[in-house]
Design a protein around this nucleic acid. Structure first.
Lengths: 236, 236
DNA sequence: TCCAACATCTGGTCTAGACCAGATATGTCA
DNA sequence: TGACATATCTGGTCTAGACCAGATGTTGGA
């Protein structure tokens, strides 16, 4: 079967053409699946194939039970540059927003304590933040720090740059990071805030941030919508 | 609807349990969709939902029209370390293989010439390699280099490390790299070799490799199966 | 033994419906 | 005006089939 004989690819092509013709703008809503299936004279199954194809291409995204929307440009995320989220966002002329979903003291799990070189079961901060671009939530991050090392951290303004806070308030500087990037399913705790169904895949970035002495200071586990980000790294 | 009431998640859970019970090993084939639908008393559509869920989790993968298979562990890929592919593979006790799919002189496209700082339309080498782990093709890479800078390159052994070749034969050393990582659909030229359907998403890594003077030497565009790789970067 | 023809098995695509649950808009009443 | 109940709209899940095309295995014949 020639690619061009696949109905869902024909529908995809027509929708792409419509998008290119700027009849739709970033974040605008596509017609409903039922409406598209009528328009193209096929079943919803086939329309959904076309939409999921475009989703895989990063052209559109879905908000759970709300509809399909046009994907905005990716944010270029450069962990090697000493820029915080808001600086990156500004530099790329985007509108960013950070919301602290929760901030509390928890018992560290084995992984986190190991990464932070703490004794298993030690108390640590867990800060959960949600970051949005032009109103679209794109990042759900878990931040872990030692409680004893950073007393009263939860009284600080946590929606701002943690790097700056650690430096200015605690005199702790981040010198380098170990970063691991994988494609993975989005953490179940993050799906609702990111408006995706449980089980959908995204980009997982785990960071262990070290001070100049090489001691681990902070552990980050970030779940990004996969169409929202391009990671850029300069090595030397 | 509670998650546990979703039939496809129940099927997923049973299959995961079966995998965990080691009734299946890495790269082994799952029963066919029709057989599973009989076993679980549902339609193929529902079985496919369960399988696609597990695919998103990186537990299984499909080979186009051949069936579903258990995913082997990810390869940890560390672009910052000065290790070539085979060294990484050995270090992780994997069996790697490199095949040169094509190597020829082409007219450089705008992007590539720009990245390599060549005049648009200049002749460049395009080397296409396929890399496999335990027989499973996981990486399709396009390599671009200036023809004039590296005469007779195509007469060299191209399945081996290019870094070593450039250094030993041409005295050109790679000092640093600019790396961009995104989730993207796999290039149509790569889908057949990677045994995936056109339009499926994977991990795209684009690298621009520079010599100590900061001059671009080599451009890589790599398409990885998304379940096959974890990128690890150390910054300072 | 080797290769070509053929049959079978696989996932890929598609129809034509149905019902569900969450999101949203609407309308009513205090 | 503001809060709440309700109707409607959305995508999410599922049935019960069908046919297609590529991958693979089998079978004969040279």
């Amino acid at each position: 079967m020639n690619d061009q004989n696949k109905q869902y690819l024909q529908i995809r092509n027509q929708l792409v053409a419509a998008l290119a013709a700027e009849r739709f703008k970033a974040q605008s809503k596509l017609p409903s699946e039922r409406e598209l299936s009528e328009r193209y004279g096929c079943t919803r199954v086939t329309v959904r194939e076309a939409l999921m194809q475009m989703e895989a291409e990063g052209l559109i995204y879905r908000r759970n039970r709300r509809g399909w929307f046009v994907t905005p440009p990716r944010l270029v995320f450069s962990p090697t540059r000493k820029l915080n989220f808001m600086q990156m966002v500004d530099e790329q002329n985007r509108q960013g927003e950070t919301r602290v979903a929760s901030a509390e003291v928890v018992i560290g799990d084995a992984d986190t304590c190991c990464e932070l070189m703490l004794v298993p079961g030690e108390k640590i901060y867990e800060i959960i933040r949600i970051r949005s671009l032009e109103g679209r939530p794109v990042l759900y991050e878990f931040i872990y720090l030692s409680q004893s090392r950073f007393p009263d951290l939860l009284d600080q303004p946590l929606a701002q740059s943690l790097t700056v806070l650690l430096q200015d308030h605690y005199g702790e500087r981040i010198a380098r990071e170990q970063i691991r990037i994988t494609s993975a399913t989005i953490d179940p705790r993050a799906t609702e805030a990111l408006e995706v169904l449980p089980g959908r895949s995204g980009v997982c970035i785990r960071r262990c941030r070290l001070n100049p002495k090489g001691e681990p200071v902070e552990r980050d586990v970030e779940y990004w919508l996969s169409d929202a980000i391009e990671v850029q790294v300069d090595t030397h």
